[in-house]
Design a protein around this nucleic acid. Structure first.
Length: 419
RNA sequence: GCGGGAUUAGCUCAGUCGGUUAGAGCGCCAGAUUGUGGCUUUGGAGGUCGGGGGUUCGAGACCCCUAUCUCGCCCCA
């Protein structure tokens, strides 16, 4: 076959799909506990939405979007992220019209598209879950969003992850800091890596998380946002930290943590795992108090995060090793070919009692059927043959100890329930 | 978009200096066991050696192009 899945896309097959299902259930359950409700938005949106929210100069918008022009001549983009869409939907459906209204929304395993060079943990179609909490300026909102992410990873059994926290201050403060940063970095222009020289022009804040060693040495003494914070910003950030500390959530302040999307302000955070290699961010998020208004809605503070499902899966598989196979409760072996009527009746009885049942669909020998039962991890085998038919019974075999007995079919359900 | 590594059976991989019919383990199918799984044993099926071109008497191996995966850069979830 010469047609393959497009570069950077993946077919989701068992048993990995089982793990995905578990993650999705875990996200749903955590959302329920935190009182978040699900939102689903279109896979494509007007290009303008992302230009106005994520930022026209960002790589995501300037280089990585899947663009298409529909037959009506509208410029569309497959969504590269979901915050912009959620905010658009919240505005469009007046979820934010009331004073003091609050929206707690989440999304689960939602596909996103970015035209990037594929790598482990980085695909062109990838999937995220995340939350958006719209309407609260309070540090408790920041806390709740971080606590949501933290609880989720903890419940899935994560131990090796790190929560990094920073604040970007508010808009005017950030502008001041940014120009101080540019002044400082300019002094070292000749020593900076080429990449950082470029970023100094386009997005100086990103020089902070350069992986180049000399860059990092220079950055270590650079002016930090923490020195520029307003009293309100500082108070907000400290309260968030207090709330985290009080609930036993470990974090590290990382002044070099900056987010790649333009709309963030104040609190930003990232959860990362050393099991992932260079694409190590499990989830990232923060506060975006001006985005709603910027997209034409009422002035509404907000905070959220997004998490990569594929990266979570990589770490979980590493954590858990071989996936346990799904076992079936009962395999029905048909030893008398003409008895299909009994076969399907017995199968219906078993499934009616809430137990899973399977039987041979390939007209194979008894031996092959038994092998199949074993392979499927069947706890019991029900055998139907000429003898059983004549006596009006079935043979029930316990696969773990090999014992077997003949019983009337109507007793199967209760027998299975008590064993 | 830039640089490195990889691609051989369903899976994980070996394949020497370029040599004749491309191998192993696991998995799969069947027999030993005419109605009974696992363990053992015997046999069997399964390969356009990622694709295309070139060098050569001869290419899985060497050269070029290409696709995909992967590691790093970039970017980010």
């Amino acid at each position: 076959m010469d047609i393959k899945a497009p570069r950077g896309t993946k077919d989701l097959l068992p048993p990995e799909s089982t793990l995905w299902k578990e993650i999705e259930r875990s996200v749903d359950e955590t959302a329920r506990l935190f009182g978040f409700e699900e939102i689903r938005t279109p896979l494509f949106e007007s290009v303008a939405l992302f230009k106005r929210s994520v930022g026209e100069a960002t790589d995501i918008v300037s280089k990585e979007m899947y663009l298409l022009t529909d037959k009506g001549g509208e410029e569309m983009a497959l969504r590269p992220e979901l915050t912009a869409s959620v905010v658009r939907a919240a505005i469009e459906h007046n979820l934010l019209s009331q004073q003091g209204s609050l929206s707690k929304l989440y999304y689960n395993a939602a596909p996103m598209f970015r035209y990037e060079r594929p790598q482990k943990g980085r695909l062109r179609q990838f999937h995220q879950f995340g939350v958006e909490l719209l309407g609260s300026p309070h540090p408790l909102a920041d806390f709740q969003v971080i606590a949501f992410a933290y609880a989720l990873y903890r419940n899935l059994g994560f131990v090796n992850f790190e929560l990094r926290l920073n604040t970007l201050g508010s808009k005017d403060v950030r502008a001041l800091w940014r120009s101080a940063l540019v002044d400082y970095l300019s002094k070292y222009l000749s020593e900076l890596s080429d990449e950082s020289k470029r970023r100094l022009e386009t997005n100086p804040i990103r020089v902070l998380d350069s992986k180049n060693q000399r860059d990092q040495e220079i950055v270590a003494d650079a002016p930090t946002i923490l020195d520029y914070l307003s009293d309100d910003d500082r108070q907000h950030f400290e309260t968030v930290q207090t709330l985290l500390t009080d609930s036993g959530i470990l974090y590290r302040i990382d002044p070099t943590l900056v987010r790649g999307l333009d709309y963030y302000n104040r609190t930003v955070f990232e959860l990362s795992s050393s099991d992932l290699g260079s694409q190590d961010a499990l989830c990232g998020g923060g506060r975006y108090d001006e985005l709603v208004e910027q997209l034409g809605g009422p002035s509404t503070p907000a905070v959220g995060f997004a998490a990569g499902v594929e990266r979570l899966v990589i770490v979980l598989e590493k954590l858990r090793g071989e996936a346990p196979k799904q076992c079936i409760d009962v395999y029905i072996v048909l030893a008398e070919k003409s008895a299909t009527k009994s076969l399907i009746a017995v199968a219906a009885t078993i499934k009616g009692a809430g137990f899973s049942a399977a039987y041979d669909l390939l007209d194979r020998s008894v031996k092959a059927q038994m092998r199949e039962a074993d392979r499927l991890g069947a706890k019991f085998v029900v055998m139907i043959g000429a003898d059983e038919l004549a006596e009006g019974v079935v043979t029930l075999k316990n696969m773990s100890d090999g014992s077997q007995e003949r019983i009337a079919p109507y007793l199967l359900a209760s027998k299975l329930q008590t064993s």
